[in-house]
Amino acid sequence: MSYKAKFRIWRGEGGEGRLEDFTVEVNEGEVVLDIIHRLQATQAPDLAVRWNCKAGKCGSCSMEINGKPKLGCMTRMSTFGEDEVITVTPMRTFPVIKDLVTDVSFNYQKAREIPSFTPPSDVRPGEYRMKQIDVERSQEFRKCIECFMCNNVCHVIRDHDENKQAFAGPRFLMQIAELDMHPYDVADRQDSAQDEHGLGYCNITKCCTEVCPEHIKITDNALIPMKERVVDRRYDPLVWLGNKIFKRSAAK
């Protein structure tokens, strides 16, 4: 059950390049990454692509297939017609190193700007007690495999490179939400989410959620709840007044 498929793949170094045509054998059950590997082994040994696990677990093989951000290892060839031309390009939001490999250092830089988990100083390892229901929300976000496709698809930076400075991207806004909801985290994250990491740039158009291979409800469960928490802190006079009167932190 094999056939010849037509591929157009972006080739080139440092952003310069062109779409190159290939005709390549496809067998039953294969995914796009298999085809790229076949091209490497037979027609283009220096075709650059990142991958590791081939099982959707590591988030290395992010690419754009027919214009949509996808994991190459989880995109089955059976989802395309046999005579369809399949276009494979690198992630658009990040600079290209070569072929399908992009420079994703933006993401690592943003990760570093998010203050890390801050537990209270008086709990020692082994003393943590958390109920399952209290960790479940953050656990969902920790499913993230850092494929960076959400950051890639988000129009805030995809279409506006100049926003990269001010905007952490859905992946890391979600990390802020994760930590803000962590039962033991004591750092104050709501003001900084808005002021330093650009939560306000998100217009909740949900592309991040659409592309997430882990099916994390980034917008509904992380970004919007985080926006609401920011409203508590910044824009809701009632909550503000309540806090003044009762002297307790509403978010805790």
Binding site: F117, P125, G126, M130, Q132, L179
Partner: peptide
């Protein structure tokens, strides 16, 4: 091993929990 796992928790890991929160 137990100390090493507990240490992870203090660095932010969220393992699945037992009923009593361990």
């Amino acid at each position: 091993a137990p100390d090493r796992v507990w240490e992870l928790e203090a660095w932010g890991a969220l393992f699945d929990r037992t009923k009593d929160g361990k």
